[in-house]
C-alpha cells in the first residue's frame, strides 16, 4: 500500500511539476491541479495509512487514539482542497483576462520570438 501510494504521489508531483514548467497557461493550470492532488495526498499520508478507522469517536467513555485515524492531517487537507479550488478559479480568471488582453495563451503574455 505504502509503496503504491508513494509512487503515485511521485507520479502526480512529477506530472504537475512538468506541466507548471510548460509555456501554455492551460498546461500550467492542469499542472497546478495535479500538484495539489499530489501534495494533498502527501499531507494526508503523514497521518499514516489506516483502513476502516474513520475518526468518528464514541460518545463518551475512554478513547484509545490508536484505534482511529489521525484527524489532524485530514482537517488540514480538507481546507487545502477548498483553497486549491479557489486558487484554480482565480488562476483561471487571470488566464482568461490575460488571453483577452494579450491575445495569446503563452505564460509570458507574448509568443516566444523565433
Amino acid at each position: 500500500m505504502e509503496l503504491v501510494l508513494s509512487v503515485s504521489i511521485g507520479v502526480l508531483v512529477a506530472s504537475g511539476v512538468w506541466l507548471t514548467l510548460r509555456p501554455r497557461t492551460f498546461q500550467v493550470i492542469i499542472g497546478l491541479c495535479l500538484l495539489s492532488y499530489g501534495v494533498n495526498l502527501f499531507i494526508f499520508a503523514m497521518g499514516r495509512l489506516v483502513e476502516g478507522a474513520a475518526p468518528i469517536m464514541p460518545k463518551g467513555g475512554f478513547v484509545d487514539p490508536d484505534v482511529y485515524a489521525d484527524p489532524v492531517p485530514q482537517a488540514l487537507v480538507l481546507t487545502a482542497i477548498v483553497i486549491s479550488f479557489a486558487t484554480t478559479a482565480l488562476f483561471l480568471v487571470v488566464i482568461m483576462a490575460s488571453r483577452g488582453l494579450t491575445g495569446t495563451d503563452h505564460v509570458d503574455g507574448s509568443e516566444r520570438n523565433p
Binding site: S6, I9, G10, V11, V13, F42, A45
Partner: peptide, 11 residues
C-alpha cells in the same frame, strides 16, 4: 527528480 524525491520522502 522532484517526483522521485517526493515519492521516497512519502514512503
Amino acid at each position: 527528480v522532484c517526483g522521485v524525491g517526493v515519492a521516497s520522502l512519502a514512503f
